[in-house]
Amino acid sequence: MDDLHFIACDAMVGAPRQPLTGGGSSVEDLEQEMAHLHISAAIVRHRFSLECTPYLGNQILMDETKNHSNLIPAWVLTPDGDEPDYDIAVTLQRMRTVGIKMAWICPKRHSFSVESWCSGDMYAALADARVPLLLDWNGQTPGELHHICAEFPELRVIILNPSREGRDRLLFPLLKHHPNLYLCLCPVYSVHEGFRYLYNHFGASRWVFGTGYPEAEGGVSITGLLYAGLPDHVVRAVAIENIERLLSEVR
């Protein structure tokens, strides 16, 4: 397939407390890795939001990705929103004002429940704006994920690091029941015949591409997709078109 490029949906930049053994984790290092892997754009989160304070991490992310048009910043959110208002509606308005089109949460680290009594207002606002929400597969239980998707069917949920357990007895029923559930096919998704099974059973439109940067070798996602035996139009959908469509639909 000529001139195929990719959009990585799961990059994380920012310095950890000690350097990673496998390489760097700065914006510049990410861009070198993107060039190596033919990745034209990346959705980027910031490690500081995960390991230290969420909203200061968003600010650092904006500073570090400024003037890098191939990087698409994603903001971390908490259901109580940012200071000084501590109102998620105000935080989301601020996020949209600066053009952020992707959100993520880390409920365990930031000590909140993903259930709607705690996070429902946040989901409703994201659904209304059609801002996709990145969730790690291990960030909540499959039952909680079911309730989120069922209660907010307009919310686009993208699962990072999805289970690699074959025809997973928890993940696959969720995909069957919830058309608003998407998977980021990243390095940990190492499933024999997995890509073809997903396509054959759920179509081509619900899968986006990820490289697990900076911890994982992103080339495994490329070979996982390109050696899967998928039709070219499906490869392009996963590599780039599905995420472009989701981003274009943000209100």
Binding site: E193, G219, T223
Partner: peptide
């Protein structure tokens, strides 16, 4: 580790190293 994992994916560890 195929079929427990995927060869299509694991080969990328060497090809892109």
């Amino acid at each position: 580790d195929t079929v427990f994992m995927s060869a299509t994916q694991q080969i990328g560890r060497v090809l892109f190293a």
